[in-house]
Design a protein around this nucleic acid. Structure first.
Lengths: 143, 143
DNA sequence: GTTTTTGCAAACTGTTTGCAGGATG
DNA sequence: CATCCTGCAAACAGTTTGCAAAAAC
């Protein structure tokens, strides 16, 4: 049974693509290529390049969204057409989805002021999650 | 005459550091390591690693700010303690400084909601500058 | 059976590092 | 003269690519 998302974009249905898609469909947060690759491996053999190539293809076809994090890695997530941003713990990587976007509204204003045609924006919030903050507190106490 | 910014951070005053600092002081927009390196070269010999190392040191000492762009390159600028964001043309790289920050206000709210200690954010607006938009228009007309 | 996709290894980009020699305070 | 800075070349991380074999339609 061919995957609808793949068929709609005229991509051949393969086990690797289905696996990657289903992992990202189930994901609660954006994943790096490596994250995805590691999750696929127990299910089937796949080469790293296939992981990258598949993610690139699915991003081109707008099935996925890709954003470069401040850690230098690309993060992928399903393009559910609900625009949002993420708060990521710089210590453990845990990521929380934030509702709403404070930028969209401002884009029109900036476009008018600068003459630019605004095509998008990337926003990443960094922080320390409660768990890591607690760990750090304990460590400091011990010193 | 030792540079005040360097002296204040207990860094030795060297011709290379002075050159890099003065280039970034004069810059109207954030620059990549390569940008800086290329601007230094006509003035004096310098190795790439010194450019990177100097930029890293100055960033550690908070004399510079560093942000990773969506193009995968690190952008450096003087830390003038006036927080702001940039609108970058994805075609030619021209960058415009935008006044004010719509995020700062929201950070407290997000911190309360999530329990995270928020340490910062990165925001980059992408667009097409008027010049590139005109060029593209002409090209499309010709096709 | 023709077109797409995959694996492998090799290349690539931006950046970092170890070490020996050189400049600074 | 002790310490810090620099050049060089080699290494690094994340990602991309060329080509031949394999799978999808």
């Amino acid at each position: 049974m061919p995957d609808e998302a793949l068929k709609a974009k005229e991509l051949k249905t393969t086990r690797r693509r289905e696996a990657i898609l289903s992992i990202l469909r189930a994901a609660q947060q954006p994943m790096t290529a490596e994250d995805v690759y590691i999750k696929v491996l127990p299910q089937m053999h796949m080469s790293v390049s296939t992981a990258y190539r598949t993610l690139a293809t699915l991003t081109e076809k707008q099935i996925l969204l890709r954003e470069l994090g401040q850690d230098g890695k690309a993060y992928f997530r399903l393009n559910d057409h609900r625009h949002c941003h993420f708060l990521r713990c710089t210590s453990c990587g845990e990521t929380i989805q934030l509702d709403g976007c404070p930028i969209e509204e401002l884009e029109k204003e900036w476009a008018k002021k600068t003459g630019y045609e605004i095509t998008g924006h990337s926003l990443e919030i960094s922080g320390i999650c409660p768990k890591c903050a607690a760990k750090k507190g304990r460590k400091n106490d011990a010193e």
